[in-house]
Amino acid sequence: MSALSRTASRTCCMSLKFIRPSSELRTNDGRSIRHVERFNGRSYSSTHVPQVPTWEPVPEDQLPPCTSIPPELVDKLERLALVDFRTKQGVACLEKAIQFADQLHVVDTCGTEPMDCVLEDRALYLRDDTVMDGNCAEQLLQLSQNTVEEYFVAPPGNIPLPKREERSAMLKHSEF
């Protein structure tokens, strides 16, 4: 890469206190480098820092077609996540996120194993499987808003969430 081709392009003015004259330096391997540093409209230029972006966003035509989320899937996700999309905008956000994630498919990962954790090559410490602390049930129960004796209180279970329309009406009542 040529030092000179990179020097001219970038100018900027910064309110800094550092003024250095242009200097001629030699790198370890003996190449000559011109440092162009002008103050007030000066440019810093290094032979090593690229002067222009080195990549571009993945063009849309390389991505799979946009995924649209059908109403049944919206319902399913809301039941699984136990949060609601609230508005159409919420669904649009998910569609956008999927399109963003689809860029991954440009990358060739053939023969590459998934990585769960960066400590995968270490033996992590396991302590003996014995009780070390505890006896703090009372302290923990105090954090709950509804307890009876030493139990957390939950409303009746095994009742599926109501249908989507009723759900929205229900949540509207609990607006904060």
Binding site: E78, L82, V83, D84, A154, P155, P156, G157, I159, P160, L161, P162, R167, M170, L171
Partner: peptide
């Protein structure tokens, strides 16, 4: 009214 409704 139910656990799931409370969660949601």
């Amino acid at each position: 009214h139910s656990t799931e409704v409370l969660y949601a």
